[in-house]
Amino acid sequence: MLVGSCLCGRVAYEVAAEVEGVAHCHCETCRKAHGAAFASIASVPRDRFRWTRGEEALSAFESSPGKIRRFCSTCGSQLVAERTGQPTVMLRMGGLDTPVTAERQWHIWRSDGASWYDPDKVWPQLPEGFPRG
Rank of each mutant, 00 (worst) to 15 (best):
S115V: 00
W106G: 00
P99W: 07
G113S: 15
R104P: 05
R31M: 03
H26D: 05
A57R: 15
C75S: 15
F71G: 10
G9I: 15
G113M: 12
R104I: 11
R31Y: 05
A23D: 07
A81Q: 13
V100L: 00
L91F: 00
L58K: 03
I68L: 09
H26I: 03
P99G: 04
R10N: 15
R48A: 15
I68A: 10
Q78E: 13
G113A: 14
V44E: 06
R46D: 01
R92T: 06
R31I: 04
A36F: 00
C8D: 10
C25T: 02
L79Y: 07
P45M: 05
F49R: 03
E56R: 14
S40H: 05
P99Q: 05
W109E: 00
E56P: 14
A33E: 08
S77I: 10
W116Q: 01
G21D: 11
A33D: 08
S63L: 07
G94Q: 02
R110M: 13
L91S: 01
W116F: 12
S64N: 05
M90G: 06
G66S: 11
V15W: 03
K32Y: 04
G35T: 00
E20N: 09
A16K: 02
T74L: 14
F49P: 10
R46S: 15
F38V: 06
D97Q: 12
M90P: 07
W116Y: 09
C30M: 02
A12H: 13
A12P: 11
D112A: 09
E28H: 10
E103T: 14
A33W: 08
P87V: 08
S40W: 02
E18C: 06
R69I: 02
L96F: 06
A16S: 02
P99V: 07
C30E: 09
E62R: 02
L58F: 01
R104V: 04
A42N: 02
A37Y: 02
R31N: 00
K32M: 12
V11I: 09
P45A: 12
A37H: 06
P65V: 04
T52D: 11
G94M: 10
H24F: 11
A37F: 04
A16M: 01
R69Q: 01
T88M: 10
L91H: 04
L96P: 02
G66T: 08
R70V: 00
R53I: 14
D97K: 14
V89G: 05
K67D: 09
H26S: 01
E14R: 11
W51I: 14
P45K: 09
S73T: 10
K32N: 12
S73W: 05
E103D: 14
T52H: 15
F61D: 04
G76L: 09
A39Y: 00
A33I: 08
I68G: 04
A33M: 12
A81W: 04
A36E: 07
F38G: 00
T29G: 04
S59C: 13
D112V: 03
E103N: 09
T88W: 07
S59E: 15
G35W: 02
L58T: 11
E20T: 15
R69A: 11
H107L: 13
A17D: 08
S63T: 10
W109F: 13
A114W: 01
F61A: 08
R70P: 03
A23Y: 02
R50Q: 13
P87K: 06
E56L: 07
C27R: 03
F61K: 12
A12F: 10
I108L: 09
T52F: 15
C72G: 10
M93P: 00
S111A: 12
T74N: 14
Q105T: 11
